[in-house]
Each structure stands twice: as structure tokens, then as C-alpha cells.
Simulated assay, not measured.
Amino acid sequence: MKIAILVREETMQRCTGKGCLNAFFQRKDAFKGYEDKTELITFSHAGGDIDHKIEMMIKNGVDTVHLSSCMRAKAANYEALAQKLAEHFNVVGYTHGAEEGKEQATVIIKKADKV
């Protein structure tokens, strides 16, 4: 399994990614069901040329994209981005902390569920 983590561009101005990366490497929170062989292929912000980033993730064999918990909490385009990504990947709408968000529900979409 190959995964990507996309974070909020504005948050990356001050965030080190520690929460997302700790959750991945410790296999906790959104990553608790992953095998040890799971590879983190991409850790990037969701800004810039998202279509190019999607192409590169496809080329590199990404199966699942995690939108960071800060995306769920603060990104106005959280649901639209999840839907766009679900055209190519499974999407899990958080990385660390509680599975359910305080402000909006967590989006979880299986690629096969997308019509």
C-alpha cells in the first residue's frame, strides 16, 4: 500500500508536520489499520498545481490520500478536494487526533464508491 498526505498550504507556513508524521510512523489515529509495509510516498501541501500533484501520485502508485486534520478543520475546499481526489484514490479526511472533526464531519471515500 502506498499513501500520500496532503496538508493545508497556509498551515505549512508554521507546521513541521510532526502530528501527521508521528501518526503515520506510529500507526495510530487514521493510520492504525495500516501494515508496516505501507509506504509514505508523498507529504505535500495541497496548494499549487493540484492536477500535476495528482498525476505524480498516480505515476508513483499512490492508493490512498490522507487529507491532514488541519485541512478538515480549516480548509474551505476540504470536501471538494476530497471528491476530486476520490476520482483516482481512496480518501481519508484526517491524519491525527479524533476521527470526527469538531467543525465538520470527516470525509472518507473509497475510490470504488465514487461514480
Rank of each mutant, 00 (worst) to 15 (best):
I3R: 04
H52T: 08
A112H: 08
H45G: 02
F25S: 08
H52F: 03
K37Y: 07
F89S: 01
V7R: 14
F43Y: 15
E99V: 00
D113Q: 11
S69Q: 09
L21A: 11
K59D: 10
R8A: 00
I109Q: 02
M56K: 12
A30K: 04
G17K: 03
K102V: 00
K111Q: 10
M56V: 07
D36Q: 13
K102R: 14
R27K: 15
V91H: 05
L81K: 12
N77G: 10
I3S: 04
L40M: 09
I41F: 04
L6A: 05
I5L: 07
R8V: 04
A75M: 10
S69M: 03
E35H: 08
D49A: 08
T64V: 07
H96L: 03
K2N: 11
F25C: 02
H45S: 04
F25D: 00
L40S: 08
T16P: 11
R14P: 01
N60H: 11
E39I: 00
A105H: 09
N90T: 05
E99A: 06
S44N: 06
T42Q: 06
C70Y: 02
A30T: 03
A75W: 11
M56G: 02
Q26G: 02
A80S: 15
K110R: 13
A4F: 07
F31M: 07
I50S: 05
V65G: 06
H88R: 11
F43E: 07
T64I: 05
K111I: 07
R72A: 05
I5G: 00
A86F: 06
F25Y: 15
E99R: 13
E9G: 05
A112C: 05
Q13T: 15
A112S: 09
V7C: 01
L67V: 02
K32N: 06
L81Y: 07
M56H: 04
L21P: 04
R8K: 14
E103Y: 15
Y34E: 14
C20E: 08
K110I: 00
A98R: 13
F24T: 01
E10K: 14
E100Y: 08
A112Y: 08
F25E: 10
A82L: 05
M71N: 09
T38A: 10
I3N: 00
Q104I: 07
G17P: 00
A105R: 14
R8M: 02
T11F: 09
T11K: 12
R27E: 03
E100K: 13
G101R: 08
T42P: 02
K111H: 11
V107P: 02
G47Y: 09
N77T: 14
G93D: 10
Q13V: 08
A112P: 05
E103H: 15
S44V: 05
V7H: 11
I58Q: 14
I5N: 03
G61P: 00
I108F: 03
E87N: 14
H88A: 06
E10A: 12
K53I: 00
I58V: 07
G33P: 02
A46I: 03
R8W: 12
F43H: 13
S44Q: 10
R14I: 07
Y34S: 11
C15F: 13
E9K: 15
V62C: 07
L21C: 10
A73W: 09
E39R: 14
R72K: 15
A105T: 04
R8H: 12
L85I: 05
C15V: 10
Y94V: 03
G101V: 06
H66F: 12
G48Q: 12
G48M: 09
I108E: 02
M12R: 14
N77M: 13
G33N: 15
H66M: 07
